[in-house]
């Protein structure tokens, strides 16, 4: 498990695609239990930074420590371990529409070999947290956008991971529902989970004020260190 202290440390991270630098010399520290926005205009590198954090991409150079473990040169076999310690939420939900809400959430428990009894206990509990109590047997495909995002969040936190990454989690939901999604993320953060949210919704950031890592053209221009350290 990830220890107490800075949970994420990035040192001089560069990510290049051919001649183009998506991230340029990004150094960031995120403390355990913090909630942080990754913000900036489209193409600034927000999603790229999240991809590096959940191991979908490797940095071209620099060092990344997550929970004290160097994941800058993560091999394929270590990837599942990283992802079991990290929930990820996407703008497009990434749910299986033909499966039920409960089955979608249970996937994250099944991959770690959780016992059926644990699945039966954890899934309703986590659906309760996201406001979908009693909806286990509904087909995921018939839910509204906001409900789908809440199922995706439930799946991301069902293993109780120390870190939750959310890539534009309110991008596909309307205003009122976006606030609800943010309230859920905030509640999860209050339970001790470190939450990183990539968004460019200034209104939401103003309403839920947390540290903002601002990226412009792949360069971090604000919010590199936790407020107390700044």
């Amino acid at each position: 498990m990830i220890p107490i202290g800075p949970v994420i440390r990035l040192y001089h991270i560069v990510k290049s695609y051919g001649d183009r630098d998506a991230l340029r010399d990004v150094s960031v520290t995120v403390d355990k239990g913090e909630m942080v926005y990754i913000t900036g205009p489209s193409g600034a590198g927000k999603s790229t930074l999240l991809k590096l954090l959940y191991g979908a991409e490797l940095p071209s150079s620099g060092k990344m420590l997550i929970g004290g473990v160097d994941v800058s040169k993560l091999d394929r076999h270590s990837l599942p371990t990283l992802r079991r310690n990290m929930g990820v939420v996407f703008q497009d939900f990434k749910l299986l529409p033909r499966r039920t809400v409960g089955q979608n959430v249970a996937m994250a428990l099944e991959v770690i070999g959780a016992a059926e009894e644990q699945v039966r206990r954890r899934v309703p509990a986590v659906l309760n947290i996201v406001g979908l109590r009693g909806r286990e047997d509904d087909a995921a495909g018939v839910l509204s956008g906001g409900e789908k995002q809440r199922v995706a969040i439930a799946r991301a936190i069902v293993n109780d991971p120390p870190i939750l990454l959310a890539d534009e989690p309110t991008g596909n939901v309307d205003g009122a529902m976006a606030v609800e999604v943010m309230e859920i993320l905030q509640a999860i953060n209050l339970r001790g989970t470190t939450v990183l949210v990539a968004t460019h919704d200034v209104g939401l950031m103003d309403r839920f004020p947390y540290r903002r890592l601002r990226l412009v053209d792949g360069k971090l221009v604000a919010g590199a260190a936790p407020r107390a350290r700044a």
Partner: peptide, 14 residues
């Protein structure tokens, strides 16, 4: 592919 992608994201091994 969606199922495989999700399984991968939630930490399933090969």
């Amino acid at each position: 592919r969606d199922e495989l992608e999700i399984l991968r994201l939630v930490g399933a091994t090969d």
